[in-house]
Amino acid sequence: MPKIKLPTKSPKIDMTPMVDLFSVILIFLMLTTTMRQPEPEQIDTPFSISEKPTPDFNVLTVLIGKDDKIFLNFDNGPDTLLKFRPKILAAMGERYNIQFTDKELREFEKYPSGIGVPILKMKDFLNTKSSKDRAVFQTGIPVDSTDNQLALWVLFARQVNPNIQACIKGDTKTDFPIVKKVLDIMQEKNMNKFNLITSLEAAKINLEEIQK
């Protein structure tokens, strides 16, 4: 009788359940997360017990870095057709007699993160392609009393989008006087309600202990 030769097979693993599992994880991640926006500077927000989430639209975010640099960011509004960002830039350009081309306005509309570029350098900034070269222009928005560009940005942002809310994202180590200055500038433009961006931290109080 001839011997029966068993074919030498490598064990085959069925990958289908693994694919199923990965699909579920992938879909979950895609639905629950928001893309992390690259920020011009690393900012560690302070902690608070507040549980109110950041609003999605109509936000004017002022980022205040550790070295007192100020960056601004606003959104395009609930509908991208509203094109709030290019409108604000155009208004700002008109004030400083700078004519922005359509291409530059589009570039500004797409820019995802905070901008800290003085308006006179804005044209160069928008025409620079690589993000590395762009970082050089991010010197912070001037807030001196002689050239208070932050006040003008806030003014035009409110003219273009009257529903805009102020969000302030400061680093824990930011000096208070610069924050106070930003608050004052915005109050001059009649914004009295602020959202301070914080990270969640639980805190418990014990009233019984106090009574003793």
Binding site: I25, L29, M30, K193, F194, T198
Partner: peptide, 22 residues
């Protein structure tokens, strides 16, 4: 999956409201 995990921010930042007197 690795790409999404690295680029996404899981928890949305919270805000604390403050209203300053006019």
């Amino acid at each position: 999956i690795i790409f999404f995990m690295l680029t996404s921010a899981m928890a949305k930042a919270k805000v604390m409201e403050i209203t300053l007197p006019e």
